[in-house]
Simulated assay, not measured.
Amino acid sequence: MRIYAEMNNAQLVTTAVKLDQSQKEYKSKLDAVKAELQGRGLRIIEDRNVKFIKFFSSDGNVSVMDSQQIDVLNPDKLKKLLSEGVWEAKVKETTETKYKYDSRLEQMLKAIFTGDYTFEYTLESFLDEMSIKPDAKQKKLLIKKLKGDYVKDKQTLVSVFGYPNEDAAPDFDVELYYIYKIKNGELIKAFLPEDGLDQTIEAIKKCLIVDSKTSITIDYDKE
């Protein structure tokens, strides 16, 4: 900028120092605000078993995302525990001897590691225990459409129970969390043999590490 070209050396140094101090001050404040938003976002994410939440204002929006990455410590042992058939169908070995896991198998493994599953209910029996009980037609539709995804399942419940929109419906948070855990339980039973299921789950857990990473993105009109 032309204004800086007209400054002497001492003035430029003073300006540089003040700008650097301001930058550090604003970065510290921004980091504090981002940490607060991340904390609020994570609480919602944990309550709703979602991986993404967005906060809005008239100036823009902030997205908080929680992602999990699975690290299999002992692929050979996991292969034996899953059975060769499941391994061959759901795991892709690359030439670098890396393993690419089918998304549903990966979801099942993450559920085992985090404990986000239940065998207490089947989906059918749980629907009979809900505070708002579906009739036979609604129940049949829900069993078919519920997948264990918070956002999509909430839309399904709102639609099937005939609410005009989500604001008019109950929050369904407890029900949605149980549905998520039930669907994960179904995955576990689909992939693993019934005999010695509890022991197999514990053995698989010892083969895994699941790391969580939270990211935050600030978006606004740059112009």
Rank of each mutant, 00 (worst) to 15 (best):
A10K: 13
Q11W: 06
Q11T: 01
V13I: 13
V13Y: 07
V13M: 07
V13P: 00
T14R: 14
T14F: 11
T14G: 06
A16Q: 13
V17T: 08
K18M: 15
Q21P: 04
Q21T: 12
Q21L: 15
S22K: 13
S22P: 00
K24A: 09
K27F: 14
K27M: 11
K27E: 15
K29M: 11
L30K: 09
L30D: 05
L30A: 09
A32G: 07
A32F: 07
A32T: 11
A32K: 08
V33I: 14
A35D: 13
L37P: 00
Q38D: 09
R40T: 08
R40L: 10
G41F: 00
G41A: 04
G41W: 04
L42G: 02
L42A: 00
R43T: 13
I44N: 04
I45C: 00
D47S: 13
R48M: 08
R48C: 03
N49Y: 11
V50K: 00
K51P: 00
K51V: 00
K51L: 01
K51S: 08
K51D: 03
K51M: 04
I53Y: 03
I53L: 01
I53R: 01
I53D: 00
K54A: 06
K54Y: 05
F55G: 01
F55P: 01
F56P: 02
F56Y: 14
F56S: 10
S57Q: 01
S58Y: 11
S58A: 15
S58L: 11
D59S: 12
D59T: 09
D59A: 15
G60R: 04
G60T: 05
V64D: 00
V64Q: 02
V64K: 03
M65N: 08
M65G: 02
D66W: 09
S67V: 11
Q68A: 12
Q69M: 12
Q69L: 12
D71A: 13
V72I: 12
D76P: 06
K77F: 04
L78F: 02
K79M: 05
K79T: 03
K80G: 05
K80S: 12
L81S: 03
